[in-house]
Design a protein around this nucleic acid. Sequence first.
DNA 1: ACCTGAACACCGTTCAAGT
DNA 2: ACCTGAACACCGTTCAAGT
Lengths: 224, 224
Amino acid sequence: MATPTARTPRRSDALSRERIVHAAIEILDADGEHALTVRTLTSHLSTGRGAIYHHVSGMEDLLAAAADDVVRAVTEHAADDADPSSALRGLSLGIFEAVDAHPWVGAQLAREPFQPAVLRIWKSIGVQLQGLGVAGSARSDAGAALANYIFGSAAQFAAGARRTRDGTERHRYLEALAAAWIEQDEDQVVREAAAELSDHDDREQFLAGVEIFLSGIATRISWR
Amino acid sequence: MATPTARTPRRSDALSRERIVHAAIEILDADGEHALTVRTLTSHLSTGRGAIYHHVSGMEDLLAAAADDVVRAVTEHAADDADPSSALRGLSLGIFEAVDAHPWVGAQLAREPFQPAVLRIWKSIGVQLQGLGVAGSARSDAGAALANYIFGSAAQFAAGARRTRDGTERHRYLEALAAAWIEQDEDQVVREAAAELSDHDDREQFLAGVEIFLSGIATRISWR
DNA sequence: ACCTGAACACCGTTCAAGT
DNA sequence: ACCTGAACACCGTTCAAGT
């Protein structure tokens, strides 16, 4: 008996960890972190509530796997660059842009230190620091400094990106914030910071921080 | 008619924002972030569920106020130091120690960029950078770099502190983690990082990162 | 004004029952 | 083995009713 042609309609694919993680990323990207619940996920996948627990251990595992998917794409690219310093710049910027596109990743990276996505970033940084000739505990220290700077920045930017996805809304939001800030505290340092706030560029500021870090490392290497 | 003596038993003080925030800190310190719910809080205060909403706007406000209480104690101390660099070291270490004592603060600082505790830290850093002679957008950049490094570190350490409050448990945990890590990835960089992991000191590593940023900032000042 | 506690509209996870 | 969906044990917030 002849089997049906290749375009036999397979109305629902079997559930798998991969399909679940992709569905989670879709929901997170479309409607944000709050929107991902077991209920929205299983309805998106047209399946029963308990079904996902055959493939992921729970919500924590799912969020970690989703973030790892996004981060993997970045760290794989970063390995291309031959110069360690520019590889570190590229890696940092890649993570910044991934968080900009997927704000939930920023919050997730700060949540759990030993999740796969975080280990992946630590390793990428470590490889490049090795290329710079930093070794032993100096490498751990430098790696931790850059990684924690990236995670802290990612969490802060993510909160901003969540609130204001378009530019003009963002500008208005920051101006209102700066005004409220000055009203609360008249100190000159606060006033100047508020003035910088509404037209500063997150991306430029983030990269400036990476340069500060790289300068700091370079100084300390030359001390040895 | 004589009023009763001063030791008239007032069995329950009136509710206030301050009392609510203090009760929240007690619960957070004693049993961790998961333990703070409107139900545990109101039962701790022997009051009705809705009562707290007369004094705080909700859970987010409450957590932000609790973190601000802890951070305020640190930033007030940090202003004492006359030398800006050592004031920045002292401020950083103070926040590290506050997070060590109150791990929930680490998670909270990464959650929301414009909460009072975060603004307080930004301002303290800004004042000291002004003392170092850093001005304009260089000050924003340097301030953001150090602040985001502190926030990222705080979130990572907090997760560790949450898991392992005593030293031997911690050491065992890190050794198991290092072993799992090596098993998953045999790369030499990972192997070396794992070897550093189980006997590294979070506090020393954090302070090493502060030095890297201070070196980087100093280098860039001398460029101008 | 302040407080109460029931009601509302949700959560993540488990598990007996089905296929 | 994989999936279903009801049940369980929770959440934060609101609000009519009390004082």
